[in-house]
Design a protein around this nucleic acid. Structure first.
Lengths: 247, 247
DNA sequence: TTCTATTGTAACATAATGATACAATAATAA
DNA sequence: TTATTATTGTATCATTATGTTACAATAGAA
């Protein structure tokens, strides 16, 4: 329950959108050995939130989520998956949305559809930080990456949504092979290990990690080697399989 | 999008319920070495469906799901978890609901809220077959267990929902320790193994299974032994931890 | 050319899992 | 009462996976 379009785009009754349902997206990136989350800031409020949106009357749910994410990040081929539906009544907080809309110049009537209760379907996305281009919308002051460890206070239960997304990412990391969606096309084994260590928040043994990953048979070695350090140059690897978008 | 209450309970505008959102529940049971699913049959239509329902305006999503399930099964303490949200536009099929409502004596106007598009939040429940008491509502002809391998044709995409629930059950079986929710309080190691074999649809080696399960340290041996066969009597076991309901 | 930091992988240790074997035993039948 | 039978509980060994140490290879800097 987050992405508020421009006032002209959505009327007071929410015609053209499904009622009571929102999408919130936790978009993860990885840079400088830090997990990042994309957050937006509502114009003139100092209120930070996850990117989000609503479902058009004739739109598939997963397509709506993809639209919401790609509008913020400027990419089309995105790993994106549902992870939880947040539906506690205690989430309902219309005054916060009155503030957001008022700061944007719209003073909404009390029965405005955006002031009704919303159930939010949580999606998490894994994107290549080097390719992503954060794009604010008109009603945002900003749209930027934040270290997971240094996020501003978020509206509603969005902090909990991020935590739950991280839990899901952790437990899916080994099971499904999704980590590579956070890396650029070519990367070293050290890059991959640091990514795993950052997500899992624990040190891994280098030989065992390398052996395990290579045994999966999903990497191919790129001929050229990375260079730059005063030591033996590591190989560059690339994942064979394509990125997946939901199921 | 399934459980239609009596006509008097819900008005044509759906006052008191969230719009466009439904809950569908895949309730699993285990009996005679068969996985069972609870299905309802809409009165006078021969149409089978998953038990389902809607969310009250001031009700938590997970509470609504628990209400929907316990109304059908007559139990309170139920393992219940979200597994996926079904939101394709192609699910939308109002004529089927016109048939169901007409057969029930209500001829709905075309703008009746139940004839609008619904996004369905899928939950799966694991219940003790010996304790469950399937309870039909007024608008059902029946509410019964069906073998997963011998289900009738279901309305909408409910067959796919069952399949996806089974996938989730399979992948959660080892990770989380949820299998015991399908068994009565006391059971033998053979019972548990048969349950696992049925769910995973493959044979397991008895000594390895026993060692692995016991190593988890979650079972306690009940003093008395089961009896009845012309062979050594197996121990009865009981799970230490309590059942969990969602997160 | 030597030094340094890091990589790639071999080698061994330990733990987990797969597979076979067999004694223990509750009911049945002789 | 005793032998028979089917199944249980677990020991034992084999295989595989994972944890850990060690060391040669090497790109750049000194």
């Amino acid at each position: 329950m987050t992405k508020v379009h421009s006032a002209s785009e959505i009327d007071e009754k929410g015609e053209g959108f499904l009622k009571n349902i929102a999408i919130d997206a936790v978009i993860f990136g990885f840079h400088d050995n830090q997990l990042k989350v994309l957050l937006i800031e509502y114009k003139g409020t100092g209120l930070f939130a996850l990117p989000g949106g609503f479902i058009k009357t004739e739109e598939d749910l997963n397509s709506a989520a993809l639209r919401v994410v790609s509008e913020r990040i400027g990419l089309e081929d995105i790993f994106l998956e549902q992870f939880y539906v947040f539906g506690d009544y205690s989430r309902y907080n219309p005054t916060q949305f009155k503030i957001i809309m008022s700061a944007n110049g719209d003073v909404p009537p009390d029965d405005h559809w955006l002031l009704k209760r919303f159930i939010s379907i949580g999606y998490y996305a894994l994107v290549d930080f080097t390719q992503a281009k954060p794009m604010p919308a008109a009603i945002f002051d900003s749209c930027n990456w934040y270290d997971l460890t240094a996020m501003p206070k978020l509206i509603q239960d969005h902090t909990r949504i991020v935590e739950k997304a991280l839990d899901t990412l952790r437990s899916n990391l080994d099971q499904k092979l999704i980590g590579f969606n956070l890396l650029p096309q070519d990367f070293t084994m050290g890059d991959l290990q640091k990514l795993y260590e950052t997500i899992l928040d624990k040190k891994l043994l280098r030989p065992a990690f390398q052996r395990k990953i290579l045994a999966l048979g999903i990497l191919e070695r790129v001929a050229k080697k990375w260079t730059g350090g005063a030591h033996k140059a590591p190989y560059l690897y690339r994942f064979r399989s394509a990125k997946r978008v939901s199921e």
